[in-house]
């Protein structure tokens, strides 16, 4: 029984992990290359989910809606970049935090207007609805496995893009030394717009995939955003590899903590005390980890080389 639960929770953790990775990948690159704190990244996650929900209403096809939602999010991302963020690169972090929190206010309310006050639900098509028996006797939702698979595939694709292509080389170079890169004649602005668009699309994909699991509502991106910040700080700002490992780590720790912390603590203290303290500690766990990492290794666990 416990072994089953363990497998199930590991899968849940992985699923949260890949979702966080989709969010963090864009965030870490934007932060790493242009030194921009973009709080509105969570809004892109939300935009992705809303677009999917609205397109699903129009087209009736989940796959089509998901495929349309990605370019739509990309477009929104590019508009944000050109209209607001471009002016912010040269500003300090404080200005960036403020302006992008203004964006959050705007998007939360705008989508509220577009989508209505009620939460929207993304219905899965029949072929994604089933349950899979991973090991005999323990059904697990197929869709969550699909999420994990898509997430891992995207991670692999990003890895190949970053390590094997010329664009990837420029991205890595930008993350380790932006000034030098632009001195070498690379159009860093253009590179950044591209990277931001990519990041926006990934966040959108995260939103689309989260849609059927959580309800689609205004403000849904914010919790994920905070978690994504934890991920990129732990992983090392600017590092895709770090973001990947940290995302899985955070996903697993958070899920496992919530599932088992109370029982674990029950081993060393009274049952009732463990039942009250367990969930509290579990929800603080990742922030404790973040504070610890910042304290002992401020550059993160896997900082980009050359820093």
């Amino acid at each position: 029984m416990t072994a089953l639960l363990l497998i199930e929770q590991t899968l849940n953790g992985l699923q949260l992990g890949v979702m966080l990775f989709l969010m963090s990948a864009g965030l870490t690159l934007v932060f790493g290359i242009m030194n921009l704190i973009n709080l509105a990244h969570g809004s892109l996650f939300m935009v992705g989910a809303y677009c999917a929900a609205l397109f699903l209403e129009w087209t009736g096809s989940f796959v089509l809606a998901a495929l349309l939602a990605l370019p739509a999010t990309l477009l929104v991302g590019l508009i944000i970049e050109i209209v607001v963020l471009r002016t912010l690169y040269e500003r300090d972090h404080l200005d960036q935090v403020l302006a992008t929190s203004g964006l959050i206010l705007f998007f939360n309310e705008a989508l509220h207007l577009v989508g209505g006050a009620e939460a929207l639900y993304l219905d899965l098509p029949p072929f994604l609805k089933g349950q899979v028996k991973i090991i005999p006797g323990s059904p697990y939702p197929l869709y969550r496995l699909v999420v994990i698979a898509v997430g891992l595939a995207v991670a692999l694709g990003l890895y190949l893009l970053v390590t094997r292509t010329r664009t990837g080389m420029l991205i890595r170079a930008g993350a380790s030394n932006r000034t030098m890169l632009s001195a070498l004649g690379v159009n860093v602005r253009l590179l950044f717009t591209a990277v931001f668009g990519l990041g926006a699309m990934l966040a959108g994909l995260g939103g689309v995939m989260a849609g059927p699991i959580v309800s689609v509502q205004s403000g849904m991106g914010e919790n994920v955003l905070i978690l994504a910040f934890v991920v990129i700080v732990i992983g090392g700002i600017g590092s895709i590899r770090g973001a990947f490992i940290a995302a899985l780590l955070i996903g697993l720790i958070d899920t496992m903590g919530r599932a088992f912390m109370a029982d674990l603590m029950g081993l060393v203290m009274s049952h009732t005390a463990a039942q009250t303290a367990g969930p509290t500690i579990a929800s603080m766990l990742i922030y404790l980890l973040m504070a610890g990492v910042l304290f002992f290794r401020p550059q993160g666990l896997f900082p980009p080389r050359g820093r």
């Binding site: 959050i104 206010l105 705007f106 705008a110 509220h112």
Partner: peptide, 11 residues
């Protein structure tokens, strides 16, 4: 929907 005015104002 005051936030839709407040946000851009902030920016």
């Amino acid at each position: 929907h005051w936030a839709i005015i407040m946000g851009p104002l902030l920016i």
